[in-house]
Design a binder for these strands. Structure first.
Length: 503
RNA sequence: GCGGGCGUAGUAUAGUGGUAAUACGUGAGCUUCCCAAGCUUGAAUCGAGGGUUCAAUUCCCUCCGCCCGCACCA
C-alpha cells in the first residue's frame, strides 16, 4: 500500500526542494546556522523580488491614492515608547518547575495571607472572573489547615511581576498549589536591542524596528506636507523588521528577521466610514493574492473576535492561508482608529492634525492597516505551487508558479549542443529575451531532463531550438503545466511571452 | 525556557570501536537527443568541541542546530 504523504512530510519535501534548488538556505549554515534566520539563494531572491515588485506595482503605482516610503530600520527610541512596543512588547513569563507549565507573569496574581498582622502563607491564581473568590477560598482553607485562630485580613492581590524577590519561593504554583516551584518572572522583550554610537550606555540604546508601520506614522506629516496627497490616501512601505521570537517555528513562517509590506491608509474619522474602507481593503487584498497565483480556496477570511482586539482597535480581519502545517495568518487588515497618530502626537509634542479642505475641518485621520509578510507570501506561493504528477508514467515534481512570480520566466534550450548553427541561434534568442526577463540557457543533458529541471523550479516556458528552426525560423514553446508544445515564429513568441508574463 | 525525538555528500537514506556507502542530483566528455535514455569520468559526507580508547562517525559529556509538544504569537 502506498504511503499517504503526511502534512509534515509535504513540508519536508518543500524544505528539501528549497534547499536543493537554491531558494532558501539556513542562515550562516557553515557555522551551524542560527535559529530563526534564513538566507535566500539565487532563485529565492528572484521570487522575493517578484513578490515585492508585484505588490509595489499593484498597491502603489497602479493606484492613485497610495505613495511609497522607505524609513530607516533604527529610529529614535522614543518612537517605541509612543507606539507601546517598549511596554507592550514585553512578555514577563514565569515557569512552574514542577508542573512544567508556563504562565504570563502579569496574569498570575498572588497575595499574602495575613491573620492578625502575621503572614501565614500565600495564595495564587490565574487571572479570571472568579479570581477574588478563588483566592479567598484558598486563604480560608490555608488558615483552617494550619489551625490558626484569629481574623483573616482582606487579601491584597498583586500580579506576580510585582512580587518581591524574597516572595518567589513562598508563592504557590496555581497548578500544584504548592510553593517553591515557580521561577522568578523573566522578561521576553521581543525587540532586538542595539547601541548607536561608540559607547554602550543606557542613553545610546536603540532598537531594530519590530514593524515598519511606525516609520510610516512618524513620517505622516512629512508626506502630507510634500506629496499633495489628500485623505483618503495611503503610505506604503516594504522593509525588514525584527522580532526576537521566543520560538521561531514552521520554517520561514515565523522567523526573527523578516520583511513586511505594509500600508497605512488614512481616512476621515467618522465612525460610520471605516467599515466601508476596511471591507474594500480586504477585497483588494484577496484579489491581489489570486492575481499572483494563490487559489481563492486556499485563503480564508478570519475576523478577530471583539474580545481579542487590542483596546484601541476597531476591527481586524486576517487573511489566512492553508499551509501544510495548518491554517495560519498571511496578512492582517486592521482598523486601528487614530491610536497611532495620537500616540505620536502626544509622545513627540508635534501636531498630527490634518486639515481637510473639502470639509473645512481639522482632524487626526483614522487608519486601515493591511500588513503582509514577504516571507509568508513566499511560503504560501511555494506551498500553493508545489505539485507532483505523472507524464507518460514518469513522476515529476513541479512548481506551478504564476508566470509573473516565477524566478525564471523562460529557458532557451538548443536541442543538441554539438551543432554550432543551433547554438548560435539559441544564444541570439537568449540574449534578446534577456533584455526583458530573467531567462536561462541550458545545453547540458537530454532535452527531457532539461524540461524537468525547469519544471522543478517553476519556469513556465521552455523554448527549444531544433533543426526545423534552421529551415523556417520557428521554435518550440513548451508549457510547464500541460507539457504541450507549439511552434511559433520569434515575433509570435515574444508577443506570447509579453502577454503572459507582464500582466 | 521545559519535556521528547533527531543530526552521515546538495537531497533522501544505509552502515560500523579499525577512517564510510547507495540512489537521485551535480561537474567534464561522447551520442541530430522533444519529456529525468545510455556510456565514460570527476568532485563531494559522519554538526562542533572535549573525554574514554592503541584507535571514536560509532561510547560518554558539553555546546550548536533541526523536528514535535507546552507556552508565546504583542
Amino acid at each position: 500500500m502506498a504511503k499517504q504523504p503526511s502534512k509534515t512530510s509535504q513540508m519536508d519535501t518543500i524544505v528539501a526542494l528549497c534547499k536543493r534548488r537554491g531558494f532558501i538556505f539556513p542562515s550562516s549554515e557553515i557555522y551551524g546556522g542560527i535559529n530563526g534566520f534564513f538566507d535566500y539563494g539565487p532563485l529565492g531572491v528572484e521570487l522575493r523580488k517578484n513578490i515585492k515588485d508585484a505588490w509595489w506595482r499593484d498597491m502603489v503605482h497602479r493606484r492613485d491614492d497610495v505613495v511609497g516610503l522607505d524609513a530607516s530600520i533604527i529610529m529614535n527610541p522614543e518612537t517605541w515608547k509612543s507606539s507601546g512596543h517598549i511596554e507592550g512588547f514585553t512578555d514577563p513569563m514565569v515557569d512552574c518547575k514542577e508542573s512544567k507549565l508556563r504562565y504570563r507573569a502579569d496574569h498570575l496574581y498572588y497575595a499574602p495571607v495575613v491573620v492578625d498582622g502575621e503572614t501565614i502563607g500565600y495564595v495564587s491564581a490565574l487571572q479570571s472572573e472568579t479570581l477574588d473568590e478563588d483566592t479567598q477560598a484558598q486563604a480560608e482553607k490555608l488558615k483552617r489547615k494550619l489551625a490558626i485562630q484569629g481574623t483573616l485580613e482582606p487579601l491584597k492581590l498583586k500580579p506576580y511581576t510585582a512580587a518581591d524577590p524574597s516572595e518567589y519561593e513562598k508563592i504557590p504554583s496555581p497548578e500544584t498549589g504548592k510553593p517553591g516551584s515557580l521561577t522568578p518572572p523573566r522578561n521576553f522583550n521581543l525587540m532586538f536591542k542595539t547601541y548607536v554610537g561608540a559607547l554602550e550606555t543606557a542613553t545610546s540604546t536603540a532598537y531594530l524596528r519590530p514593524e515598519t508601520a511606525q516609520g510610516i506614522f512618524a513620517n505622516f506629516k512629512n508626506v502630507v506636507d510634500t506629496s499633495r496627497v489628500r485623505v483618503p490616501f495611503g503610505i506604503a512601505q516594504i522593509g525588514k523588521a525584527f522580532r526576537n521570537e521566543i520560538t521561531p517555528r514552521n520554517y520561514i513562517f515565523r522567523s526573527r528577521e523578516f520583511e513586511q509590506m505594509e500600508i497605512e491608509y488614512f481616512i476621515p474619522p467618522d465612525e460610520d466610514l471605516w467599515p466601508k474602507y476596511h471591507r474594500e481593503w480586504i477585497d483588494a487584498r484577496l484579489n491581489w493574492f489570486e492575481s499572483i497565483g494563490i487559489p481563492r480556496d486556499m485563503l480564508i477570511e478570519q475576523v478577530h473576535p471583539k474580545e481579542d482586539l487590542a483596546h484601541y482597535a476597531k476591527a481586524c480581519t486576517d487573511i489566512t492561508f492553508k499551509y501544510p502545517f495548518g491554517v495560519e495568518e498571511l496578512e492582517g487588515i486592521a482598523a486601528r482608529g487614530n491610536y497611532d497618530l495620537m500616540q505620536h502626537q502626544e509622545g513627540s509634542g508635534k501636531s498630527m492634525e490634518y486639515f481637510d479642505e473639502g470639509r473645512g475641518e481639522r482632524y487626526i485621520p483614522h487608519v486601515i492597516e493591511p500588513s503582509l509578510g514577504v516571507d509568508r507570501t513566499f511560503l504560501a506561493l511555494i506551498c500553493a505551487a508545489y505539485a507532483e504528477d505523472e507524464i507518460d508514467g514518469e513522476k515529476r515534481a513541479l512548481l506551478r508558479f504564476h508566470p509573473r512570480m516565477a524566478p525564471i520566466k523562460a529557458a532557451v534550450l538548443p536541442l543538441v549542443k554539438n551543432k554550432p548553427e543551433l547554438m548560435e541561434i539559441a544564444q541570439k534568442l537568449y540574449k534578446r529575451l534577456q533584455r526583458h526577463w530573467n531567462v536561462f540557457f541550458d545545453v547540458s543533458g537530454a532535452i527531457g531532463r532539461r524540461y524537468r529541471r525547469m519544471d522543478e523550479i517553476g519556469t513556465p516556458y521552455c523554448i527549444t531550438i531544433d533543426f526545423d528552426t534552421l529551415e523556417d525560423g520557428t521554435v518550440t514553446l513548451r508549457d510547464r503545466d500541460t507539457t504541450k508544445q507549439e511552434r511559433l515564429s520569434e515575433e509570435d513568441l515574444l508577443a506570447f511571452l509579453t502577454q503572459h508574463i507582464d500582466v
